[in-house]
Nucleic acid binder design. Structure first.
Lengths: 342, 342
DNA sequence: CATTTTTATTGAGCCTCTTCATAGACTCGG
DNA sequence: CCGAGTCTATGAAGAGGCTCAATAAAAATG
């Protein structure tokens, strides 16, 4: 069944049916009603592919995620998807499972005109490819980004956030502060590590090189890195961990080692996942507006797709230091994620 | 740039270029090499939409998920996506955010020929719609399902799993066992509740109606329902919770109430999320092979798409009772999710 | 050289949208 | 009151890029 069938039944031309569907204002009221009635009667559904082919618009965006099972990303993804949908766009999911080469596979969808634009939550490909890509297609970076490229980007100020949370540890009296990072190959790893270093330096605190351990996102990894820190001669009294997942692992490692958080070792995380506020000790962390980052990124992409010029390319979202128990400066007990906000 | 440009440059017809791309065996070696060279030279990328239009195949499947931020689903989703990709299919993501009406919106993509088939991780629409849908398009249900319909389905045997875990509680000596469920409007809620009832009945244990509380998936909800149970005159000594998230909330409620798990109240969960094996007390739960469910569902769908007849429509995946600490019968401490398996 | 086999080309769609053309209704000034 | 000019509503026709069936050409075989 196709448009011509509807047209025949309604005694109009296919063009009119098409108009009813896409530019209803151009059609006389009665004709329109007639056509709509027939459409419903026959339960006609336009073939989107034919339409996309003709208009050369797929109304589809690609979202490339490094790991969809991480709560942080799935929340951002939801923000993107929701916004896209509201604006009549579909989302093709590209989970790279942390494999760089898979980024490129997904991106082929742009070159092959399947998707009109992309939001990248991971951008590990080389700078030239990315530059080339963004010169040809609307692309927005979210969370991760790349320096020196003129690509619209949505993220928090990771350096400043990392500095803030490290400084909080310093303010409550810590001097030997370690950092479980995500290697500096990832821009976020680099930024958060830099923030940590800045905070330490500006307070004239030395950083023992072995205090900086490189983890790999997940709970287990946080556990393992913490075990290393615990084994040190010159053991730190506080640790700033790259993200909440690893921070949870770290806390567990401390407990398993017979020590207490925060009394013996303070630990702070990053991201403010739901579970960070649920387990004792409640975790001090940096809140990122995950859903909003997704929304904003989708919003920017949609604007690019409409050809709207974007003056401010770097959108910095507001983060928040959430002080709870794990840093050793907890003020009063509150239930369910409510906490003193700074 | 299009195929004809490549053809011209290579002194062949567009049809030959098309064959090089799609049925290379039909083309003489030299011609093929020549064409490929030109393709690379010009960096030609075929227009997928035109191709899809012509062949009437989009190589795209739709995955409808009730809530992408829940770890259980994102793991299943990954299994689906991975398998789809391996077989040259793309995935359009449909996150309904638990709104039934949004299921239908996504499903329109099938009627409009955008997607060729669908995996539904949620099926709350009315039976007739679903029946109608599956009669017209390849559809596979995963996790949730609907009784009495001849639709391929992948899941564990929820009734038996629930019975198993409840019986374990009985075996370690509990008699007053409560259940925090997900209302019986959802088939999984019904099944797990039934398994619980079966176990209780077959051991002649009475169920106090107020022992069955209806939660809503997340940690907070588990907390709240547990608070209710704790307030009962006739307080249960053990609780079987619908899923791990709510079980974590329940455990927290017990602790906040000044009681211990499992000594005062035993708690068991369902799903075996990574975090279930990480927080003390380590949680006894039912392991579902999440990734494999996704793989299998995608696999079935792909077979349907190829027109292969599927004899066994109901695939029951193997679950596993993972005994850890929270049920009060922990045997020996093991790190990182390793536990006694039954 | 005739016949079979292999390889390449021709041309017709796939279904929808949009431009252009037309016909009718309407406006308005002379 | 009429003809020119405006609008409105519809139709006719073609294009969009690719693939496949039918056809033709070339190569291989006997």
């Amino acid at each position: 069944m196709q448009m011509r069938d509807v047209a025949k039944r309604a005694n109009v031309s296919p063009a009119t049916v098409s108009r009813v569907l896409r530019q209803p204002d151009l059609v006389k009221k009665e004709t329109k009603e007639k056509v709509i009635q027939i459409i419903n009667e026959l339960n006609y559904k336009p073939n989107m592919i034919a339409s996309q082919f003709r208009t050369r618009e797929t109304k589809t965006i690609l979202v490339v995620v490094p790991d969809i099972t991480r709560p942080f990303f799935s929340e951002v993804l939801r923000g993107i998807e929701h916004t896209a949908l509201q604006n009549g766009y579909q989302v093709i999911l590209g989970d790279t499972e942390n494999r760089i080469e898979r980024e490129k596979e997904y991106i082929e969808l742009l070159y092959r005109k399947q998707a009109e634009g992309a939001v990248l939550l991971t951008a590990r490909m080389d700078r030239d490819s990315l530059k080339e890509l963004s010169s040809q297609f609307p692309v927005v970076l979210a969370c991760e980004y790349m320096d020196g490229l003129d690509i619209p980007t949505v993220s928090i100020d990771n350096i400043s956030s990392a500095r803030k949370v490290t400084e909080h540890l310093i303010n409550v009296g810590h001097r030997k502060i370690a950092h479980i990072s995500k290697g500096t190959d990832v821009i976020l790893g680099k930024d958060r590590q830099r923030g940590y270093q800045q905070a330490m330096m500006s307070h004239d605190l030395p950083i023992n090189p072995s205090w900086v351990q490189e983890g790999d996102y997940d709970i287990d990894s946080g556990y393992k890195q913490m075990v290393k820190l615990l084994a040190l001669e010159d053991r730190p009294t506080a640790v700033f961990v790259f993200n909440d997942e690893m921070a949870l692992g770290s806390i567990k490692a401390v407990k398993d080692h017979g020590l207490r958080v925060p009394e013996d070792i303070a630990i702070v995380g990053f991201d403010n996942l739901p579970m960070a506020s649920f387990f004792s000790p409640y975790m001090t962390t940096i809140d990122q507006p995950k859903y909003e980052i997704g929304q904003k990124a989708a919003d920017l992409l949609l604007r690019l797709l409409k050809g709207i010029f974007i003056k401010r390319k770097k959108i910095v979202m507001k983060d928040e230091l959430i002080i709870r128990e794990s840093c050793g400066f907890y003020q009063k007990e509150q239930l369910f994620g409510e906490a003193e906000k700074v």
